[in-house]
């Protein structure tokens, strides 16, 4: 199959824009980035099948029909995105209501472990006895 330039450019731009938004801390912005990325991915999948008449039997000759398989996959992806968007929006709102902003904070537990690593200590869980005490 010969690639289609418009698709390729659009995919690249959607990815780039999506990535630049996803790398920020505001949850709503991350979510918008994810939506853009998702659109880019859908288009990428669509690109894998040939274009043509709608894949409905009897609408045209079977040979000219667009490849239905990528479409089937994308349809699932679109609806899942809807569910994810709803959930993340609720999360963003909750975060805003609780703490006054919707920014994704650094993970506290990860921070603690980083500090332990800097101090060359173990995790300090009591299941491991560090000093050999006998």
């Amino acid at each position: 199959m010969t690639p289609n330039l418009v698709y390729i450019v659009v995919i690249g731009v959607l990815f780039a824009a999506g990535v630049s938004m996803v790398l920020e801390r505001s949850l709503t912005r991350v979510l918008m980035g994810m939506i853009l990325l998702g659109n880019g991915v859908n288009l990428l999948i669509l690109l894998g099948g040939k274009a043509g008449t709608p894949p409905i039997v009897g609408l045209g000759p079977d040979e000219e029909m667009a490849d239905p398989l990528p479409q089937i996959m994308i349809l699932t992806a679109i609806v899942i995105t809807l569910g994810m968007t709803a959930f993340l929006l609720a999360l963003a709102y909750r975060s805003w209501a609780m703490s006054g902003h919707d920014e994704v904070q650094d993970d506290v537990e990860d921070r603690r472990i980083m500090q332990l690593a800097e101090r060359d200590q173990g995790s300090g869980i009591d299941d491991v006895d560090h000093g050999v005490n006998r």
Binding site: N4, I8, L44, L47
Partner: peptide, 27 residues
Amino acid sequence: RNVLAVATGLVTSAMAYVAVGGRTATP
């Protein structure tokens, strides 16, 4: 961030380009 974004976009475009060209078998 912007450099990473542009790089990701370029790589994805290139991958799309190659991947589509690689489809030769009957689906």
